[in-house]
Nucleic acid binder design. Structure first.
Ligand SMILES: [Fe+2]
Ligand SMILES: [Fe+2]
Ligand SMILES: [Fe+2]
Ligand SMILES: [Fe+2]
Lengths: 227, 227
DNA sequence: AAACGCTTTTCGGTCCACCGAAAACTCCTC
DNA sequence: GAGGAGTTTTCGGTGGACCGAAAAGCGTTT
């Protein structure tokens, strides 16, 4: 995975990648700008440059996509980000709501050598503290077939495979509730009108039921139980 | 220790600090520029800005010095640099010639929180892998009374307290020779004319003698043996 | 005191990341 | 098919970090 020039470019590629990771639509300029925290004009300029560099594909007034070269570079950034998050939790005692911000900065600063050392020391992990898959150096990505809890029908059950790290507050909330990776969950009842879902946590008699709001439900991804 | 704005500014302050660390003369613009790897005009501009910000003292055509505020910020950068170097060697298995470059980048990226965790995990070390003192969070600096081997008279002995990390090649050379921190050394014979010094390594019968060139001798700092 | 070499400063200019305002465009509605 | 809302692009402008050329200043030598 070659290194692009600048942190801003890396963030741009990473964001485009992230947009296509769990669904696959091209991201719009305005969403890109918003995700990057810059004005639309700035995002437009950045996209133009990366398109010229052959890392993005983009037709005027259309959505933005990674080229194959761009995808490789994005994977590099994502790999760095997620390995760093894993390291911070596993070795430095960070909690999972603290790591994202730190990784956001460090992903632009660690060398290949350091990344190798981290990877080895962590035992070549396949997912980060939030369950996001860590791209391998060869550009492949471990892909658990997870679905958002929001898309599961009533009665469906599985184990938590991923929790979106977008909002640290949500992560702290889940930690309080005892919701973490690999926890067994079941959709008990949907209350569409109220915007909440009753979810059973844990298997057997030790389980509890909680009432989760839509945003929380959408943040949880589940690997359906084999049946 | 407050954080200055930009990596370039941090590097500038750090370099001015480094210049005054083992001797105490104000650094000149040209040396500063050279150390930073930028043109004199760039260095001049940077110094002007930091002077305006109250971090440097500088009279036109004169040397450059840290103000008290500047010293605090410089100490912050140096603390980060050296703690990171220590971590890389102690925890990630780097050799001492590999760490400087990496730390050069990471020092601008780690947060206070991460620095705290590293510090705690390393047991609040007082010196880095090259023997350089690690400034404490309160702005004090552990100060071993070391002298350059180049300044010691024939017959003088002591333990290696510091080895300049300026040149990785020199570090690898020393590693090959078995020269490391706390090794007992004695100045056996100076050959000024030849630019070399005979140094005895180790105490007692297990000791060996080596012939070191002036640059190598100048890179070694010794804590004179109590006598 | 004039001249020389070196250092420092100033000056104009580049590139990058950013912004807001205004123009261009798309798409949906009436 | 004309408007209008929202999105995208273009345009002019800022500030930071850099550079090389040229001017200014300093210290020393003649
Ligand atoms: Fe993250
Ligand atoms: Fe994550
Ligand atoms: Fe260093
Ligand atoms: Fe060091």
């Amino acid at each position: 995975m070659p290194r692009p020039a600048t942190p801003a470019a890396e963030d741009c590629l990473k964001t485009v990648y992230a947009a296509g990771e769990w669904s696959d639509e091209k991201i719009t300029l305005s969403k890109l700008a918003q995700a990057l925290g810059v004005s639309p004009s700035t995002a437009s300029e950045a996209v133009r440059k990366l398109t010229d560099a052959g890392l993005l594909r983009h037709e005027r007034y259309g959505g933005v996509e990674l080229t194959e070269a761009g995808r490789l570079q994005a994977l590099g950034v994502v790999r760095r980000h997620r390995l760093i998050e894993t390291f911070l939790v596993a070795d430095l005692g960070y909690s999972w709501d603290e790591v994202h911000e730190e990784a956001e900065v460090l992903e632009h600063a660690v060398s290949d050598r350091m990344l190798d050392r981290l990877d080895r020391r962590l035992g070549h992990p396949e997912r980060d503290p939030h369950g996001d898959p860590i791209p391998r150096p060869d550009g492949t990505v471990p892909r658990p077939g997870a679905h958002s809890l929001a898309d599961l029908p009533e009665g469906a059950a599985g184990s938590v495979a991923r929790i979106s790290d977008a909002d640290p507050e949500v992560l702290r909330y889940f930690a309080d509730l005892g919701i973490g990776l690999d926890l067994h969950v079941r959709v008990v009842k949907r209350r569409e009108f109220a915007g909440t879902t009753v979810v059973r946590l844990g298997e057997g008699p030790g389980g509890r039921e909680v009432d989760l709001g839509d945003p929380a439900v959408a943040a949880v991804w589940v690997l359906p139980a084999a049946r």
